[in-house]
Design a binder for these strands. Structure first.
Length: 112
DNA sequence: CGTGTGACTAGGA
DNA sequence: ATCCTAGCCACAC
């Protein structure tokens, strides 16, 4: 696989995130088989704008904080999107994050 | 090929 | 609990 596929694979995983659920960059990286590439996942998400089907608002850091909210068009767009999915966000942080967390490795678990 | 950057994370103080 | 540090990866120059 080529390095360019990394972005596509990140998008693939993000697209699998169920409605009303969220996950972390590290979890995605781990699902891709490269748990230490969490930063690169964030970088990939930065380019996710090219694919509108990627629900980037469902991806937060490991603390459930909307670290990438500034990368959205609106100031509180990311928060609004999450709240529209039934999530509660306060101080840029997802409430009950642990319950809402969705681990791609458990659902997908594809290692290559 | 070296350096800097970032939507990250884990571990130590 | 918070703050700081180092490691990590992919990418732009």
């Amino acid at each position: 696989m080529s390095n360019q596929d990394f972005f596509l694979r990140v998008y693939e995983v993000v697209k699998q995130i169920p409605y009303g659920r969220v996950t972390s960059y590290g979890a995605i990286a781990k699902a891709l088989g490269t748990p230490k590439s969490s930063r690169a996942v964030g970088y990939a998400m930065n380019a996710s704008h090219s694919d509108p089907d990627v629900p980037a608002h469902r991806v937060v850091n490991r603390n459930g904080v909307l670290t990438g909210k500034h990368h959205f068009a609106g100031t509180h767009l990311m928060q609004q999107l999450l709240e529209s999915e039934g999530l509660k966000v306060e101080a840029d942080q997802i409430l009950n994050f642990k319950e809402r967390f969705w681990d791609p490795t458990e659902e997908l678990g594809f290692q290559e």
